[in-house]
Nucleic acid binder design. Structure first.
Lengths: 355, 355
DNA sequence: CTGAAAGCGCTTACAG
DNA sequence: CTGAAAGCGCTTACAG
């Protein structure tokens, strides 16, 4: 008899209508179990009209019995769009980018898209590798916080229809949508704030100058000093790595030399935190304004005055622009610049020591 | 002549061998342009042996000319595994989970897999929706920080071969791999530390008790008190929302009542930060130990003593376990528990006010 | 209302 | 060394 076939254990059930272990039932399996055609199953799964209640029920029963779940990868292959976007940031672990990440996710979710994530680790090669891997998966769009300065490698992808928006820093050597913070204006305002509180000797410690945001902030510092008619001594300006060791050394040098600065403008949150430590160890108050807000800045004493960006808004704006492009909005690449906000908390309002 | 066909603008090039705008060249396009078979292109693209240098060059030229990039979605459909994993956490914007996220990414990268991300927003329905969406995309594996307490919805997926590891909190109503922190032991140690510094009246403010980690930490608090032979007044124990308003009210109540506690044990980083604010406003030192480390804890005054978890290790451990499962390691579900580390910084070593 | 055929862009299993 | 055929699991376009 046909039933004398060897009993099928959990690891392999050749009996028709049931998938083998580790495999998954397909629409074909559902169709044969329900005794209908493939297209009818497709109609039920996708809620398309034109199926009698009785047929629908039979299909639903088969779906439940087999534990069928539509394979969206196959669907996607046929439909063209993948309903997924890729986001490349510098470091998924960096608290500064976390709200940006979440904001992008929310917008993607509103549009029914999934989010693929990756960290460039501030390495141009890794950025490219990730971006192209995402494109190979045929993401509909790409949001990139660039690490590199040459994005020509993306030209074929963009031409092929991958919507691409750069955030936080502009693209290099290609013309593309970008959503940025007004780094120049923010830094200028922060330094002007120190000037307004009587400082004339203001130090700048920032990130490496090849990073766009760092260069812009340094430019803002210089502009504020020039506007105020203040000279800038070369020894007051220190762009470079944000490694605590270097920042610490530079802050100590500027604050304890023969003719010390009376205030510090720090170019990003990591620099600011190290500067706070140095000042605390110094034992005397030093005026400080930092670029980027950070948690607990208000709990330190003195509380730290900052030029705040809005990372969530950066992400939201970029993602919305991306989906607008995907919906067919054409036009020249856009450059959106978001404002900063000066948050006075105490450290930036300290006067210079009365000479 | 054939060349009298209407000129083809950028939006549509019917000329054979070139894709229309917005579409992408396929292996078939490459094959016909190079004058070879489809399989030969596949061999070149995948670096398989058995192609003469001359043929290979012709194929490479066609690839370059057309800007071909293999469609990994199609490849995946045929191969079975998608080389992607999904990670569901509570909130991509939460700095606590950011290092976990990055650690998972690094392990995935080591295994050539991409990372799809999502936030449950502490909502069980949204967790399920995300998990099933990831499964529909046929991720190879799933790492979940669960929001819900019933994960039976994942049983068909797990049976179908989706490797699944829970992190930070265990799965509900199913038996599955889990990587957890020793919340009980950590809390017990933190409270015992306060006891060792002379405190007998210690308050506990924690998260909602239906959250596994919160319940475990409360259990640790009670165990430490009991071990020390100290009674626990009901008014000293406050599990509930971590919203600043509630935490603030509870901290103020415990610290300013008729018979106030002399020390506070706070159940997570958000609670700790609010407690620090309340204590700062109070104007007198109060001993404090918090569960979870946080940035700048050492810069506050007094610096905050914490029971630290290692979120990156949590993520790394979970991801490694996941890939071991994907490599075929069978066996009963595992439960890994990672130790905490008490970090004395000052606030936890304050003595009770001399009565 | 229902379904057979063709095709999305690859890989697998074979055959020359 | 090379390639035609079949198939991964769906959807599209059509026909009954």
């Amino acid at each position: 008899m046909a039933d004398t076939a060897p009993p099928s254990g959990p690891a392999g059930t050749p009996r028709s209508g049931r998938p083998r272990y580790g495999a998954r039932p397909t629409m074909k399996d559902v169709a044969s179990r329900a005794g209908v055609g493939l297209k009818t199953v497709s109609r039920v799964v996708n809620g398309e009209p034109g199926v009698t209640p009785d047929t629908e029920r039979r299909v639903q029963d088969a779906i439940t019995a087999l534990g069928f779940r539509r394979n969206d990868s196959a669907r996607i292959l046929r439909k063209g769009r993948t309903a997924s976007i890729g986001l490349i940031l510098e470091d998924l672990a960096d608290p500064f980018y976390a709200p940006l990440n979440r904001a992008v996710e929310e917008v993607a979710r509103d549009h029914g898209a999934l989010l693929i994530n990756g960290s460039s680790a501030e390495d141009a090669d890794r950025e490219q590798e990730l971006a192209l891997a995402f494109c190979a998966r045929r993401v509909d769009g790409l949001i990139v916080i660039p690490a590199g300065h040459d994005h020509r490698y993306l030209e074929p992808e963009i031409a092929a229809g991958v919507a691409t928006v750069f955030v936080d820093r502009p693209a290099g050597l290609i013309d593309a949508d970008a959503v940025l913070t007004d780094n120049f204006g923010g830094a200028r305002e922060g330094v002007a704030h120190l000037v307004a509180h009587g400082h004339r000797r203001i130090g700048f410690i920032g990130d490496q100058p090849h990073i766009h945001t760092a260069a812009e902030r340094l430019r803002g510092y210089r502009a504020a000093m020039e506007t105020a008619g203040l000279p800038v001594d070369g020894s007051w300006v220190s762009p470079g790595s944000t490694a605590p060791g270097r920042v610490r050394a530079e802050a100590e040098r500027m604050l304890t030399g023969p003719d010390p600065v009376t205030a510090l403008f720090t170019g990003n949150n990591r620099v600011t935190v190290t500067a706070v430590r140095v000042i605390a160890e110094l034992g005397r108050p030093v005026a400080l304004v930092g670029f980027d807000d950070f948690e607990l800045a208000d709990l330190l004493s003195p509380a730290v005055t900052v030029v705040a960006q809005d990372p969530a808004r950066l992400g939201r704006t970029a993602a919305r622009l991306l989906f607008r492009r995907l919906e067919g909005v054409e036009g020249a690449p856009r450059r959106v610049e978001l404002p900063t906000r000066l948050v006075p908390r105490g450290s930036g309002e300290l006067p210079p020591p009365s000479a």
